[in-house]
Amino acid sequence: MATLVTTVTETLRYRGKIGQWSWVLHRVTGLGTVLFLVLHIIDTSWAAFYPDLYAEAIAEYQSPLFTLGEFALIACVVYHAFNGLRVTLLDYKPEWWAYQQRAAAIVFGATTIVLIPTFGFMLSHVADFYGEDPDLVSVGDIIETQSQFVIGFVAIIAAALILSALYGLVSRSRSGFVLPGRLEAAMWLFMRLSGVLILPLVFGHLGMMHVIQGVFDITGGGIEVVGTDIVNDSGKAVEFVGARWDMLVAGVAIWRVYDALLLALVVIHGFNGLRTVINDYALQPLINRALNWAVVFGAIALIVLGTAALLEGVDETAYDIAVDINETTASAAY
């Protein structure tokens, strides 16, 4: 049995064909997307619960470090989506296997083709924003705030490890976290199904929030919020969110429904993917159990948090509470 290190190094040494590299990239892009997803759901929920924190978060998103991250995120999502489609197609049409290499190449090509104009749009937003010589959050502040997330993750994993160890002592269990075969099969199916459903949702979401209007437009006063007929008068990020969530079509808050769907599908898809990776590499039962618990807990927590935020919504008082972005950055500069 190869160790984790040899598994990874040998995967890079083995001269597999394009299929192997597609798989490696699928994992890397999936993990990258999940990481952003966690931050994004927590941040966005603040729009409902801690409007001032939300404003700070958006300010950080408008810093160069996160701008780079945003480009990477878009690339990850696009590649992962296309390659996921390829895998799903081959799963359902095994007899098409002979085209898998060509399909993998097409995935690379299609990703590139989609990314070029997308990046072009995004770059124009970046250019507009930086052209006006904005005040930026310092790297030190970013590290300080983001390290809180890291501490949070570490704390959850540590707690899971302790619980898992205790569980191991009590139950004398020697196995990791195992799903019953039928449930594993159901999850496999879910990954394909949700992947296909997520595709339009996530592309729509990315198109609206990263391409048509970028993160820089969230704080643009007097701009009509994308997907709505509401103008963001205050230029505050929370008002932007509030505008979207309050937008009614035939009495339905369509963007809340949209976001709720996306939230549930993406979190389960992403965290199940994470679980898959964990189960491939974290074989030691205690660790395997702990990480799986952390994953399950994390997924539930995020869905609960996100749902709560969607139900709560952003009200007028939040607009007042929310700090003006320029004030925040100004104060941070001190």
Binding site: Y14, G16, K17, G19, Q20, S22, W23, V87, L90, D91, W97, Q100, Q101, V178, L179, G181, R182, E184, A185, W188, N279, D280
Partner: peptide, 14 residues
């Protein structure tokens, strides 16, 4: 159908 069965295949084609 068990966890160490077919579901560990990741369609890598190696």
């Amino acid at each position: 159908r068990e966890p160490d069965g077919v579901w560990r295949c990741r369609t890598i084609f190696n």
